[in-house]
């Protein structure tokens, strides 16, 4: 027979709904960016829709992430030192680069209108695509390395996360 807890203590969830919102938004953004990169790589389409999705979701994802920090004013601490052992630290670099590059790309694409893509824009698209992979990789890795959470710490979890994104 299982144990009966006569005295027990609750532990609240430390990552609030914001974290989930972030994972969803950034995942969607990164997914869209990947689609965009793929589309442009195989030159099937301009994929402006995917770009709009990628840019807006990437931009939006920053907000819930900041909200999930209990000390949002200290976000600069991410950049004042190096913590290469922490996947989250890598993410703290990937995310602004991804947001920035996606926005820049959106800006470039928007400004040129229907004119053909320049080499710079094409390179940037590929950079955005790579960064999107980094984002997906880091978010999935961030959760799966936490062996304390049995569901997360499975080989399948990153795959599931990427696919759902």
């Amino acid at each position: 027979m299982p144990a009966v807890d006569l005295m027990s203590f609750d532990h609240e969830a430390v990552w609030r709904p914001w974290a989930v919102a972030y994972f969803l938004l950034v995942g969607t953004g990164a997914g869209a960016a990947l689609l965009l990169a793929y589309a442009r790589l195989v030159r099937v389409a301009e994929a402006k829709g995917a770009l709009i999705v990628a840019a807006s979701f990437a931009l939006a994802s920053g907000l819930p992430l900041l909200a999930d920090l209990h000390q949002p004013a200290r976000f600069m601490h991410f950049y004042s030192g190096a913590a290469p052992g922490s996947i989250m630290w890598w993410g703290s670099w990937f995310l602004p680069l991804f947001i920035g590059s996606t926005l820049l790309l959106a800006f470039m694409t928007g400004r040129r209108g229907n004119a053909p893509m320049c080499a710079g824009e094409r390179t940037l698209t590929m950079i955005v695509g790579v960064l999107a992979l980094c984002i997906l990789g880091y978010t999935a890795g961030e959760m799966s390395v936490v062996s304390a959470r049995p569901v997360w710490n499975t080989l399948g979890f990153p795959v599931v996360l990427i696919l759902t994104a």
Partner: peptide, 12 residues
Amino acid sequence: QCVACGYCVQAC
């Protein structure tokens, strides 16, 4: 120094 991201809480 702590930004209270909660990652350590998850990791323990």
